[in-house]
């Protein structure tokens, strides 16, 4: 196993595991066990065909399942952000999610109130999403400035809370900052899988209003599409994606898969649906190749995935040049 994948599990992570495991167990237990069983069979078959023994390791299987899920939801949600110049929304929400994690860890360390960090992250990121919208609407702040302010503000809250506990929670924080594949638990995979179902279902149902607002917001408003509701939905979906992917990718890098696969394939697809599909494929390739390289060479997983995604972008651009 690559040393870069190894990060100590913490009590905070354990709490998360218990709670999300209970959540997952109560609703998805049966289908989820079946799903993991099927994927184990597939991975073992792949290991047999390719001779890659690490495909049979449960923690590697969980890592692959996680990045496969992120590779779907990242570009799927990101494509509705990128073409509206809202690419930084993902990054902003990720950094405020970090504040949510810090709040949860702080409450536990200082006041012994157990709040699962991912719940804290989801709550704070969702509030931040609505805050950005409110800043733009009511104070007339330019949206990129509002995003920059909320992004740094979120990170500031996190760092101040960490300093308040004499470094007691910084070990747990590290894992959220940089992500980790080795510590992806069954519950994390369950959370990602269920989040993927929710996000895919939401985008499928709201595809038309999302597309209309992304392409031509004024015409959408004239056609009485409820742009505000669409924006709120998009913000919440983005918060869902970054929070559920944060444990693997890390706060700092999680937004990459919302953006890079989308811009990589923007010029390839002809229709929007095609480009969505290609974006997802690019996300999957980046995730799978990144995790594999991280394992083989003992690299940081989140960083490897992002670098592979960027390499893919460069290759596609060069390919178009020489076409």
């Amino acid at each position: 196993m690559g040393p870069g994948l190894l990060l100590a599990s913490t009590s905070a992570a354990a709490t998360t595991d218990v709670v999300s495991h209970l959540l997952v167990a109560s609703v998805f237990s049966g289908p989820f066990d079946w799903f993991l069983g099927v994927s184990d069979i597939v991975f073992s078959w792949l290991a047999g065909v390719t001779g890659l023994q690490f495909l049979t390791y449960p923690y590697m299987q969980r890592a692959y399942l996680s990045v496969l899920a992120i590779g779907i939801v990242g570009p799927l949600v990101g494509s509705f952000l990128v073409y509206r110049d809202l690419s930084m929304v993902g990054d902003t929400l990720a950094h405020t999610a970090f504040a949510g994690v810090a709040v949860a860890l702080f409450l536990e360390a200082a006041l012994s109130i157990a709040v699962p960090p991912l719940v804290g992250a989801l709550v704070v990121a969702t509030i931040a999403a609505l805050l950005v919208q409110a800043l733009v609407e009511y104070t007339g702040t330019r949206s990129d400035a509002a995003l920059a302010m909320v992004l740094t503000g979120g990170f500031a809250v996190g760092s101040v809370l960490i300093s308040l506990t004499d470094g007691g929670i910084s070990v747990g924080i590290n894992q959220y900052l940089f992500g980790s594949l080795a510590t992806v638990s069954r519950a994390d995979v369950g959370l990602l899988a269920s989040m993927t179902l929710v996000v895919v279902a939401a985008v499928t149902v709201a595809y038309r209003p999302l597309l209309y607002v992304t392409f031509d917001e004024t015409a959408a408003r004239a056609s009485r599409v409820h742009v505000r509701a669409v924006n709120t939905l998009l913000s919440i979906l983005t918060a869902f994606v970054v929070v559920s992917a944060m444990r693997i990718m890390g706060v700092i890098l999680v937004a990459a898969l919302l953006v890079i696969p989308v811009v990589t394939t923007a010029r390839i697809g002809r229709s929007y649906k095609q480009s969505l599909l290609y974006g997802v494929l690019a996300g999957e390739v980046a995730g799978v190749v990144g995790v594999t390289l991280a394992y083989l060479y003992g690299l940081a997983a989140g960083g490897s995935i992002v670098l592979v995604a960027i390499a893919g972008f460069v290759v596609v651009q060069l390919g178009r040049r020489f076409e």
Partner: peptide
Amino acid sequence: TSRDMPITVREV
């Protein structure tokens, strides 16, 4: 947006 976004005439 209308120049950069991958979208067909029919989709619009």
